Simulated scan of single mutants.
Amino acid sequence: MHRLLLALPFALLPLAAQAHEHDHDHEHGSLAAHEHGVARLNAALDGKTLELELESPAMNLVGFEHAARSDADKAKVAGVRASLEQPLALFDLPAQAGCRVSAQELESPLFGDHDHDKADDHAHEHEHSDIHAHYQLECATPSALESLDLAPLFKQFPATQKIQVQLIGPNGQQGAELTPSSPRLSF
């Protein structure tokens, strides 16, 4: 399934105005992809498995991109990480679908869980920091997944002005730009 998400940007290339290549050696994507106020969400439903992959500039979620030095900055980063560790509170999925988190992975230089072996990676960390969250959900009744509502995510992180969504579901593939005033996408 993870391969499906990696292929998603290429499958939806005609739908995406700004497709970018995902490079595992450079977790931030391309510089052009880093736009404050804008996040990306890839979603794929395959059988009972729903995968969600959120990528956002740290500015949208934390309010800054530099390494947390002060106690206030460290508390803000810890609070954002705690929120991201609760995906069912951020992505409003129908309760009838019976989705539960089976796996999740959070990555960001701000979380202090990356080794930066290359000097240029370390320098880049101070220019732009992104937060990448990957969730795998198992849904007991996937047919009940009629929509994905991002209103709670927009409410939790108000600096996020729009989310570019690419979705593969039972009705095919689609792309959309969701905003706080239009936060829902049908599967």
Rank of each mutant, 00 (worst) to 15 (best):
L13Y: 10
A95E: 15
R40V: 08
F10A: 15
L137A: 07
E177G: 04
C99S: 09
A89E: 05
L4N: 12
P152A: 06
D46S: 15
A33N: 06
Y135N: 06
H134D: 05
P183I: 09
P170R: 13
L137E: 05
S70K: 06
A78N: 05
L106N: 04
D113Q: 15
L8Y: 09
A103V: 02
H34E: 05
R184S: 05
A32K: 13
Q161D: 07
S143F: 08
L52Y: 03
Q136V: 14
R40S: 11
H26M: 05
F157Q: 00
H36F: 03
V165K: 10
R69T: 14
V101R: 11
D115M: 11
A89T: 03
I168A: 15
P57A: 08
Q96C: 06
P152K: 03
H28F: 13
H66C: 05
E146T: 14
A75Q: 14
G98Y: 04
L4H: 11
A95G: 02
A44C: 08
S182L: 12
S186F: 13
A68R: 10
S108G: 02
A103T: 03
A33S: 14
F154T: 04
E177I: 04
P158G: 02
H132L: 14
P14F: 04
T49V: 15
D73V: 00
L45D: 03
Q166P: 01
V80W: 00
F91P: 01
P14D: 08
F64L: 02
G175H: 02
D25S: 13
L148N: 07
H2P: 03
D120C: 12
S83C: 04
V80E: 02
L8W: 13
D25A: 13
L90V: 07
P109C: 09
S181W: 01
S102R: 14
A176R: 14
P152L: 04
K76T: 08
F91L: 00
L93G: 10
Q166N: 13
P170C: 04
L12M: 10
C139E: 07
D71V: 09
D25G: 15
F111S: 04
S102Q: 14
H2E: 14
L50D: 07
V38C: 04
P183Y: 11
E85A: 12
H2T: 14
P9S: 01
L31I: 08
A72H: 06
